[in-house]
Design a protein around this nucleic acid. Structure first.
Lengths: 229, 229, 229, 229
DNA sequence: GATGAATGAGGGTTCATTCAT
DNA sequence: TATGAATGAACCCTCATTCAT
């Protein structure tokens, strides 16, 4: 055997040294002693989101999170029991508001056309253009190592969303035909949105994806009036 | 703030103890001196795929890979420069054959109906039901930390596939109408397939997804004959 | 050598979780401003004794001492420079009264029989059945890491006690024969008392020792009338 | 309140800087690959005994143990799962041989005089003048934080020794009178030996104790022929 | 080639101590 | 005085990588 030898492919990850240190936090901002704790907690969560998003759970050093939050390493432990809890509460708290948003649509009674327009807009404004996009990406990339978190996400986020979607579609079907497949596989509705998050996370610098446009195209395809059903 | 303090949410990851040790490799199998090296290399790659898939890049210990491959820790370094190189070559080599498959379809000239049927079947048999599915998942979960690997994946895998898809669709349009959106956003074609991999990776135990059925439904939706285009 | 490796003997210390949190102190009790400080100081010392006795010097967390004393962590530092000083003053102050007791016996003039009876009773009531027993145990277990404290203990406690003992024995010898060995090695008199503290500290749950009975038996042995001296 | 204030008593422990670094191990010594592991294990145990004896369990840093053993920090973990296991196996292995010694005396049939002479000699040569003395001291000083180890020590060391002692005393009583108290409280026999270990551990520099002489005096006192029993 | 003992940098976590309120 | 949030040094343990056998 010759060329099976070791020193082959060129290193791919950036060298350790390149690991850009988290920039020291910018503005201290005045605050009452009362709200200080909650604010600080929020600061840590945001710093953690930055770091987890950039390096993944395992590679993230709590010291970097702290530095980015502008605090000392030990301070993180005043707010979160450990790294895992930090990660977990980050995901839970960033996604919980989503549920509220879902509830709001429960009473809606719209034709699919209008409905889909609203959904796309909702996704883009509330998720894709916010940090929640990063949380969803974290869920996707780290979920397998956090089975309980995956279960939470499935039970508390995805299931309600899919239920709501099914409800909306059923009510929408009063205004016109709605493909059965979408009711059976709500994943088909959400798929391009998820793919957009993944794609732009990995390939944006090579070929950015116009999310809004793609989602619009997708909706049009799914719901286009058909000759025969 | 009172006690926003630490000991809050319940631990989520499985306890350390749960980390099932990699089972010692099974059959040695006889082989000529010539092929021995290549075989061993392959064994390591498969073991690495198992471990990387189960724990992610960072959490995977080379010792576990070695144990699973039935060799000593040091031996891995005779075949791969380091952990990163192992990961990288794993992804590269498992995905390269895909390219060949793509080439094969370049000359095909089929109506969309037939075409899509073939594509679904190809995906399920060649990816979803093979270990390549795991490589794609690894690409998704670890890609951001391996920018060069992402770039490779984009350039050597995704772009060719999308080019081929566009070619197929254009040729298919000779047999009947093909939605423009799919040519502009081939991601829309692939999205459910990717989502299937992600979904079953995270939520299979709660709600398994019938991949073939969903993909079929998706194709039907995309390509259903329409009243107006 | 095959696998002399690590994972061998079963873990022995109680799990972290078992570390029973110090119960918040019970009754505040009214007091003049004058005595308030002294009281609080005393409270801290007693809490410290509890914690040091239960876990040893190193393992004791000042936060637990504070909690047990019903005060905040920082408050401890208003009364004691640091953890070491707290430990040191605890030992010094708990043992100093012993000296007074010794002095009191200096003028006594008793036969050995009566004398030993008194000594046993003194030890049991003033030490063994009080928290001073714990201080002595602390002295034994932590003394080597606090050489100055050991020196204090030797000079201010043991030496005076041994001197007093020698005096008592000499005066007792006027009433009847007293073994010379006890004058040369007063440790022989004290040994069973010390052993009682150690034994019941370590093995009480397996085989409790009846201190008073053992000490009585010991005295009888030491001082039994002999055929020939 | 005035003088209850904090900065009072002079610091007592040596400053951190004074913590004499463990001297790099002396002689490498040649050895076959076969015995290398066992030897190294032994080296680590001895280094650990040094450090644990000097600083106690909690204050001992595994890095110092390693340095003293002339190895790297991580190497310790090849031989012992963790610090606790190291401590535990150290105690167990150093004390187990004691049991063998006990067995040997089981068949002895001697008069108390001769017997006690042998016991004193045995203690001094096999324990007091060896490192086992340090292990016993460790047992005394750390036992409360290692309940299982205390239980082991009671069950596997003390109980057998006391049983053997009782047996010896009973057989000795055929040759002459033996105080019943010693059979009921074998602790009385061992007490001065234990006290010797403790005393010289704490106060040797102030007033060294002549162990052999004290033990001899003790035996004489215990077993002196009496007028009446 | 193959092994696995050895290395030591790295990072999670704890806790004595400080200090602004 | 009293508080408890904040700090950061310290230390246990892991694991990628090396290298003598």
């Amino acid at each position: 055997m010759k060329n099976t030898a070791a020193p082959k492919t060129e290193k791919i990850t950036a060298p350790k040294a390149a690991r850009a240190r988290a920039p020291a936090a910018p503005k201290p901002a005045a605050s009452t002693r009362e709200t200080r704790g909650a604010e600080r907690r929020e600061t840590i969560l945001m710093a953690a989101l930055d770091e987890f998003s950039a390096r993944g759970f395992e590679s993230t050093r709590l010291e970097d999170v702290a530095k980015r939050a502008g605090i000392a390493k030990g301070t993180v432990y005043l707010y979160f029991r450990d790294k895992e809890t930090l990660f977990q509460e980050l995901v839970r708290e960033m996604l919980s508001p989503v549920l509220g948003g879902i509830e709001a649509t429960r009473s809606a009674d719209l034709p699919v056309g209008k409905l889909s327009e609203i959904l796309v807009d909702l996704f883009v404004r509330e998720i894709y253009e916010t940090r929640r996009k990063d949380v969803i990406r974290l869920m996707i990339t780290e979920g397998r190592r956090f089975p309980k978190l995956a279960e939470f996400y499935y039970r508390e986020v995805l299931s309600p969303i899919f239920d709501a979607l099914r409800g909306l579609l059923k009510r929408a079907s009063a205004h016109g035909p709605v493909p059965q497949a979408l009711i059976e596989f709500p994943q088909l509705i959400a798929a391009p949105a998820v793919i957009a998050i993944i794609w732009n996370g990995l390939f944006e610098s090579y070929e950015p994806l116009d999310v809004r446009k793609m989602l619009k195209a997708h909706i049009d395809l799914m719901l286009a009036p058909r000759g025969a059903l």
